[in-house]
């Protein structure tokens, strides 16, 4: 599975945890996963960070550009529910109000173990 990473208004903590998964201790390539640079090759759209009004259209655009079937993962507390930004002025709703979400990986930021657990659930789907 090839993963394309869409970072919304992320605080970068989730992104660093994703990088952890690529390094030698957790090594996500064991499950055949790679990060790809373009959404045209993506099988998984990983959305991290809170989605504000500016990001919303871009997220929709990226989702429409992905070749279907594509799995969407809402990553981190902001992606799943909105976290501390849920009542913010510019917050445009958690990811599942914008595009259909296949898996949620909660946490602020999620631990690499949690990410691996989410991935295995996604692979068995």
């Amino acid at each position: 599975m090839w993963v394309f990473h869409f970072a919304g208004a992320s605080c970068n903590n989730c992104d660093i945890e994703i990088l952890d998964c690529l390094t030698s201790r957790y090594d996500i390539e064991r499950f055949g996963m790679q990060l790809v640079g373009t959404v045209r090759h993506a099988d998984v759209l990983l959305v991290s960070g809170s989605i504000n009004r500016k990001c919303r259209d871009r997220l929709l655009k990226v989702y429409n550009q992905a070749p279907k079937p594509v799995l969407v993962v809402a990553f981190g507390a902001c992606g799943c529910t909105g976290g501390i930004f849920a009542e913010g002025n510019v917050f445009a709703g958690p990811v599942d109000t914008i595009i259909p979400v296949d898996a949620y990986i909660p946490g602020c930021p999620p631990k690499p173990e949690a990410i691996l657990a989410g991935i295995v659930k996604l692979l068995n789907k």
Partner: peptide, 11 residues
């Protein structure tokens, strides 16, 4: 590549 980076690598 994976072994060079001390990873396990793809199946």
């Amino acid at each position: 590549t994976a072994r060079v980076q001390f990873r396990k690598g793809a199946p």
